[in-house]
């Protein structure tokens, strides 16, 4: 654990609002090794997305320290890439332009951009949609574009903020499978925020359970089940039940 790729030390976040301050996160410490698939699991409003945004360098912690790839964060790290729940695609760009955007932001040359974008479009099964606009795509395909864009810069860690939260169950299951394939092929670290217990058990090597208000790390659960998993895999139901207990008992978490 000494060479953790992502490390949070006693991280807290307090939002100062007009009606007083809200403590979103308190005393979170965690470490994530390179290549690991880690799920941040919690009910909505437990600060898990806030934590992910901070690891992505989009927000600053109010206290504590975050280290990514051996460096304390000050702004987004080039070693990470984020996939957003509402995919964040630019409606005025074609799929190919959207996928190439992160590379453009980093000053990658046009030719290289085109090649790498084509490669990632192929990986995510989007090659024939390269010239379409986002609004012409289904929700699942839009999120594939978001993933393809995140992968273009060869990030060492993929930060995913409830990426499949807005999708229907079937599309969601398909994208989960595809994500595992991509993860296996690319060997990136994945930090994946979700409020779905089944999703966490299906995907993760390790599940970090958060309790709400203020968000605190309640448990660190290693998932030992062999892949591919299904809800009928031995041990799946038992682990899900255990997580349900850890989460507290609000019904909302599927």
């Amino acid at each position: 654990m000494s060479a953790a790729f992502i490390e949070c030390l006693d991280v807290g976040k307090i939002y100062e609002g007009r009606t007083g301050s809200v403590e979103a996160l308190r005393g979170v410490s965690l470490a994530c090794a390179e290549g690991e698939f880690v799920c941040l699991l919690g009910l909505s409003g437990c600060g898990k997305s806030t934590l992910l945004q901070m690891i992505g360098g989009l927000e600053e912690p109010s206290s504590g320290q975050i280290v990514v790839a051996g460096r304390e964060l000050s702004g987004p790290s080039p070693a990470t890439a984020i996939v957003f729940q509402d995919h964040g695609l630019f409606p005025w760009m074609t799929v190919a332009q959207n996928v190439a955007f992160n590379m453009k932001a980093r000053g990658v040359g046009a030719k290289q951009r085109r090649e790498r974008a084509a490669e990632m479009l192929a990986l995510t099964g989007l090659s024939s949609f390269a010239t379409r606009y986002p609004h012409e795509l289904s929700g699942g395909m839009r999120q594939r574009v978001g993933i393809a864009r995140a992968l273009t810069t060869k990030p060492r860690a993929l930060l995913m903020d409830e990426p499949f939260g807005a999708l229907d169950a079937q599309t969601r299951a398909r994208l989960q499978h595809e994500l595992l394939e991509i993860w296996a092929a690319q060997r990136t670290t994945v930090l994946f925020v979700t409020h779905s217990i089944d999703e966490a058990v299906f995907l993760a090597d390790r599940i970090l359970v958060f309790t709400p208000r203020p968000g605190q790390l309640a448990a660190d659960v290693t998932v030992d089940l062999p892949r591919p998993r299904t809800p009928r895999s031995p041990g799946f139901a038992a682990l899900a039940a255990k997580l349900r207990g850890l989460l507290g008992t609000e019904e909302g978490s599927e």
């Binding site: 702004g75 890439a81 984020i82 932001a105």
Partner: peptide, 17 residues
Amino acid sequence: ERTLLKVAAAAGAGEAL
């Protein structure tokens, strides 16, 4: 949309871009 500016910030996009 807020998310779009976050995408740009996370990608390290410069102000001109």
